[in-house]
């Protein structure tokens, strides 16, 4: 009963927001004190226009409004015609996000493990890491575009840079927090130093790594989008910039909507992965 009422409230709020977005501006002249200037469709478009634009950018309808699937090969022709249609843009953005995520997570983990388990190395390198970490990573994006060009590499490097520190600090903490008694137990059960590393230090540090996967995927997406803003041939970020240049609010909104959906799906997948990998932890510790 409670769940149903929650759902009803959510649907009602969403519909109300959409309705204000769609029709609110028509009352602007009559009730200027109620309808702020920000509701101007020039800035935020309208749900109906955004949906139309989604169909066009997604090659589902042609510019005259007829369905591409109505004519044989219409969809393929449309995809081939425009360089940066919605599907290709999404593909490039997601691909680079995943690469940034994978490279960032793996290198951050190795680095965190290495420094976390070596007092000497962490003593030497920690000031540098702290200094680098204090740079807002996004400020480096233009330099990265300059160095790596406007192709995929610069997007992956930007995403990597954002992810690697996050994962590094988590892993570093985890590697320091390995239970001494677990290490002693392994040694007393006959494990060599290398076996202790492989069977105790890596798995118990993994728990900390997994906790950072959710933010890591979101950060990676942010890194790629910022990279695409600054200079790219493909991608959702590029779509937003193009639409902005043409003053097309609907185009920008389509891109933002696609990013929202992508973000939700990616973090849901990562959370599933996390729950599976951490299945040995008591339920109340999950999601930590």
């Amino acid at each position: 009963m409670r769940r149903l009422s929650t759902l009803l409230w959510q649907v009602a709020i969403a519909l109300a927001a959409l309705a204000i977005w769609e029709w609110g501006w028509t009352f602007h002249d009559r009730l200027p004190w109620l309808v702020p200037d920000l509701l101007d469709p020039y800035f935020i478009s309208r749900p109906s226009a955004i949906f139309q634009q989604f169909l066009t950018l997604g090659c589902l309808t042609t510019s005259d409004g007829s369905w591409t699937f109505a004519q044989p090969g219409g969809f393929a022709r449309c995809i081939g015609k425009s360089e940066n249609n919605l599907w290709i843009a999404t593909w490039f953005t997601l691909k680079n996000t995943l690469w940034g995520f994978l490279t960032g997570v793996s290198s951050g983990f190795l680095l965190g493990l290495l420094l976390g388990r070596s007092d000497r190395l962490s003593e030497i390198f920690f000031p540098f890491i702290t200094a680098f970490n204090s740079i807002p990573r996004i400020a480096l994006a233009p330099i990265i575009i300059l160095a790596f060009g406007i192709g995929d590499a610069s997007k992956i490097v930007t995403a990597w840079l954002v992810v690697v520190f996050l994962v590094f600090f988590n892993t570093f903490e985890g590697a320091r927090a390995v239970d001494r008694d677990h290490i002693n137990a392994a040694r007393l059960l006959g494990a060599s130093e290398w076996q202790v590393t492989r069977t105790v230090i890596v798995p118990s540090t993994m728990a900390w790594l997994f906790a950072s996967l959710s933010p890591a995927i979101s950060f990676s997406l942010i890194g790629v989008i910022v990279g695409e803003f600054i200079g790219a041939e493909h991608g959702i970020g590029r779509m937003i910039i193009e639409a902005e240049a043409r003053g097309e609010a609907a185009g920008m909104m389509v891109a933002v909507f696609v990013l929202m959906v992508a973000g939700v799906i990616l973090s849901a997948l990562v959370r599933r992965l996390q729950a599976y990998l951490l299945r040995w932890r008591p339920a109340h510790q999950l999601g930590g």
Binding site: D179, D181, H182, N184, A185, L188, P203, W280, R281
Partner: peptide, 14 residues
């Protein structure tokens, strides 16, 4: 020589 701890030192991930 085997050793049994007072504290729980089972590997929780195994």
């Amino acid at each position: 020589v085997g050793y049994v701890f007072q504290k729980d030192t089972l590997f929780p991930w195994r």
